[in-house]
Computed example of a mutant assay.
Amino acid sequence: MKKILVALLVLIVLAVAGVGGAFFYMQKAVTTPHASGDPAPKEFIVKKGASARSLGQQLQSQGFLADARVWRFHLWRRGNLNVKAGRFLLSPTASVEQLATALEGQPLPEDVPFAMIEGWRLRDTDQVLAAQGLIKPGEYIAAASRSERYTAPFPLPTRGLEGYLYPETYGIIAEGFRVESFIQRQVDTFRARFYDAHAAEIAKSGRTLHELVIMASMLEREEPVPAQRPLVAGILWKRVDKGVPLGVDATSRYELPEWNDRKAFLKRLRDNQDPWNSRTRAGLPPGPIGAPTVDSLLAALRPVKSDFWYYLHDAKKTLHPSRNAQEHEALRAKYNVY
Rank of each mutant, 00 (worst) to 15 (best):
V46L: 13
K28H: 15
R53P: 00
P41L: 11
P33A: 03
F44R: 02
Q27R: 12
P41V: 14
Y25R: 00
G49V: 15
A35P: 08
G56T: 01
K47D: 08
F44W: 03
S36A: 15
G56C: 01
K42Y: 02
I45Y: 10
G37N: 13
P33W: 07
T32S: 09
R53N: 08
T31N: 15
P41E: 04
L55W: 03
M26C: 02
A50N: 14
F23V: 13
K28P: 01
I45A: 04
A22M: 09
D38L: 03
P33K: 09
E43N: 03
S36E: 01
K28E: 12
K28N: 07
S54V: 02
T32I: 08
S36Y: 08
T32F: 08
S36I: 01
P41C: 05
G56Y: 05
S36C: 08
A52C: 04
A35R: 10
D38T: 13
P39F: 09
A50T: 13
A40R: 11
I45W: 02
F23I: 03
I45L: 06
T31S: 13
F24C: 01
F44P: 08
S36F: 01
Q27N: 15
K42D: 00
F23S: 08
S54R: 11
F44H: 02
G56L: 02
P33L: 07
E43G: 09
P41T: 10
A40W: 00
T31G: 14
L55D: 00
P39D: 05
A29H: 03
K42P: 03
K42G: 01
V30Q: 05
L55R: 02
M26V: 02
A52M: 07
A35D: 05
V30G: 08
A40L: 05
K47C: 08
G56P: 01
M26E: 07
P41W: 09
G49Q: 14
A35C: 05
F23C: 10
A50H: 11
F44Q: 07
S54H: 06
K47G: 10
K42F: 01
F23Y: 13
G49N: 15
Q27P: 04
A52P: 02
S54P: 05
H34P: 04
S51E: 12
A40G: 01
E43Q: 11
S51W: 10
T32C: 12
P41G: 11
F24P: 00
Q27A: 10
K48E: 15
K42S: 06
A22W: 09
R53A: 11
R53F: 06
A22K: 03
F23W: 13
F24Y: 07
P33F: 09
K48S: 15
P41Q: 10
F24R: 13
L55M: 11
R53V: 07
P39Q: 13
F23N: 11
D38S: 05
V30A: 03
A35I: 12
E43T: 14
V30L: 13
V46Y: 08
A52N: 09
Y25P: 00
S51Q: 15
A35S: 12
V46D: 01
S51H: 10
D38H: 05
Y25T: 04
D38V: 12
A40H: 09
A35Y: 03
H34T: 13
